[in-house]
Design a protein around this nucleic acid. Sequence first.
DNA 1: ATGAAAGCGCTAACAA
DNA 2: TTGTTAGCGCTTTCAT
Lengths: 330, 330
Amino acid sequence: MAKLEDIAKLAEVSPTTVSRVINNYGSLSEKTKNKVFTAMKELNYQPNSLARSLKGKSSKIIGVIFPGVSNPFFGQMVETIENQLFDRGYKIILCNAGKNKEKERAYLRMLIANQVDGIIAGSHNLEIEEYQQVGLPIISFDRYLSENIPIVSSDNFQGGKIAAEVLLASGSKNIQMISGANQPNSPTNRRLVGFKEVIEDNNLKFGLTEIKYNASPNIKGMKIKEVLSNNSVDGIFCTDDLTSLLVFQQAHQLGLRIPEDIRLIGYDGTSFIQEFHPELATIEQPINDIVTLMIDLLLQRIKDPDCNLQQNYVLPVKAIAGETSRRISE
Amino acid sequence: MAKLEDIAKLAEVSPTTVSRVINNYGSLSEKTKNKVFTAMKELNYQPNSLARSLKGKSSKIIGVIFPGVSNPFFGQMVETIENQLFDRGYKIILCNAGKNKEKERAYLRMLIANQVDGIIAGSHNLEIEEYQQVGLPIISFDRYLSENIPIVSSDNFQGGKIAAEVLLASGSKNIQMISGANQPNSPTNRRLVGFKEVIEDNNLKFGLTEIKYNASPNIKGMKIKEVLSNNSVDGIFCTDDLTSLLVFQQAHQLGLRIPEDIRLIGYDGTSFIQEFHPELATIEQPINDIVTLMIDLLLQRIKDPDCNLQQNYVLPVKAIAGETSRRISE
DNA sequence: ATGAAAGCGCTAACAA
DNA sequence: TTGTTAGCGCTTTCAT
């Protein structure tokens, strides 16, 4: 692997000059520039980022911590992050923290060791303290990590409200909400609050079933079957689209018709769902905007670590109509 | 950020000694070890990977190039890669090359600049030469990149055969295959070859519809509708499960029943499909094994760049039964 | 068992 | 406009 010095020799200039050419810095004659460029071409030269970062320049790497990317929602999220960061000249180290505290901790250490410029965190296994100690710009997606770490999220409260309104408009009276187990302090809890508000404003009640986020689809399926059979449910709000898909399936297996017998609405609205399951009504999170905002904030913090940012940034959601929430005329 | 020297001072030893403790190298007295450990704890010390890599140690970073991770197949692939590499002490830089030649080229350069130890490539936009010049250990998934770059893939030929057999066993006679546009030299073409062989051995013919991998679901949907309406098709093999999903939908919209009117089988068999669409018959690629093998080979090459590896490694596939390929008794 | 010193590839004062 | 030199944080001979 050719190094800067080799270029310098070949071009018959000093290393400094080569560095200047590479970084387009200081004053240089066209002639030297050309000599250097030619030499770089000839040796197929690539500056060593490591050495560059060591010498004070930033690494231009962002650590991205999510539970995983096999889930289409996180997949789209991470893909969007990666694409947008690439355009801004950054690369990402991907960290699938799963549901593993130890792993997340190890990742944090590793990211520090690798001198990343900042972190985008969409996972949530760790205690507040550990994030506080990182001493690196962090932006969090939809999770409370610690004071002073800004949270970007979609408008969970409004999302919950809209979901309730859709179900009510579809004529549902006997409503169930199926959500992941409550994370203390998590903004996603607001979906429940918003949902509840609307339902109760309409003098109705609703049942709440919590299913652990990390339960296997089989387990989830079972719980859903319970929900579907024990009640005369006619409307269901799932806090993510995959659970909604499962409900759709189980209903079919039980011979319940959607939307005739039960109306269904999910949450997230990934392009995957919109493209491959357009029948599913859902609340769409504005993934692109979320990502853009997270990156803007992160880069701000990177530029000026002491810059003042809000604790919460909330982006609007949108209802996506779908066959599963169609009103059945009586 | 505390550095090695700070530890040395605090522990009242030389930097060398600290380095020895960190790397568990050379001979050390218990006493010094303890002093150093204590100091490290106290300053919450993290060795700087960059500096370490600069000084000859490998970076322990692998570049992972795929089209994207919002597609569940690639998502699962990348997640598995990341998990397995983490266990082996490596981290990954994720590169979503999309369908963009320029981007893939830029990634290659960037990975070199970042001194990655090796590359796992699952994308396929570039010309052979560019990969040949990288001068880094590379393993490819399911794509021919260049001589001397090992390809790991599932048994595409056998997969095609099995798919054909399943459709035949289900009683289909008027069969269509829907595949991505043919990549020259790509191992995935063997799915077609295997499929064709079985169909023709049974004195049948089949129609082939090629749909560009990167077509939007809407475009794909249209083409599929054509396929479904222009023929009296009664059996379809899609070379990926998402297309298969689309066929399933379109068939419903056209009032065609699956499996009564048409039998359907896909390809890939991600856990996503198996869990959320168990009705879809498919050919499962052994993602875990593929990843394990790719990583084994890559680490071998990293250890010994000249080690002899085969050009092709083929792993067996498995048919996953599903309602969509059930035989209808007459 | 421990330390001194050189150097990895690059950048950035400071000189000229 | 260009070059000399020191040093980023760490590892590693070579001494002691």
